[in-house]
């Protein structure tokens, strides 16, 4: 993937397929620790221990259209090749949490990329609530789709609202600075 934000979009797709109604995305960039950490958790159906052990294997998938599942192994490989780490925890009936960290200054690290594009894509097509938090050296941007839904109702998914939201997120992402 050319951007970490694309891995995030891909993982949200997994959350939705696991039946989640809520997804939390937290990105933390800390120059002092030289770390970029992405944490994604959901309240989906979770996995049993055998499935959990298999998901980092590229030749495992729950899907039937092809025999490989690449999303999780790709993120794991991306994190590990940047002196980072990858963990996945899950409990049946409760949900799943993925944490991937990257050395900020690693030459092979993909840019974070556009979270405005990723979140706009999620809001446009998924009926899932997203709690988003992006922290850069103590500066924080937070967005809760539940609050937006209170303002917009079902119109949240309308293309004109999505285009507005994308621009809104982009403005705030620029303000917190950090990786774009």
């Amino acid at each position: 993937m050319e951007e970490i934000a694309l891995h995030i979009l891909d993982l949200v797709q997994n959350c939705v397929e696991a039946g989640a109604s809520e997804v939390s995305i937290a990105i933390t960039e800390c120059r002092r620790d030289n770390l970029l950490t992405v944490k994604i958790s959901d309240n989906g159906r979770g996995m049993d221990q055998a499935t959990l052990a298999a998901v980092t294997d590229p030749f495992f998938t729950t899907r039937s259209t092809r025999k490989v599942g690449l999303g999780i192994p790709l993120l794991k490989a991306a994190a590990e090749q940047c002196n980072g780490s990858f963990t996945i925890e899950s409990s049946e009936g409760k949900g799943t949490q993925v944490v991937a960290s990257f050395a900020l200054d690693h030459i092979d690290r993909a840019p974070l990329g556009s979270m405005a594009d990723t979140l706009a894509a999620v809001f446009a097509v998924h009926h899932v609530d997203v709690h988003y938090r992006h922290e850069v050296d103590g500066k924080v941007f937070m967005l809760d789709s539940k609050e937006i839904r209170q303002l917009c109702g079902d119109e949240l998914m309308h293309p004109r609202v999505i285009v507005w939201l994308r621009a809104y997120i982009e403005e705030h992402e620029k303000q917190v600075g950090g990786e774009q």
Binding site: M1, L6, L9, D10, Q13, R63, G69, L70, G71, L74, D117, T118, A121, V125
Partner: peptide
């Protein structure tokens, strides 16, 4: 919007 679609640019 599977992994393959996203990697190829489906978000854009």
């Amino acid at each position: 919007m599977g992994t393959c679609g996203i990697a190829a640019g489906a978000r854009e």
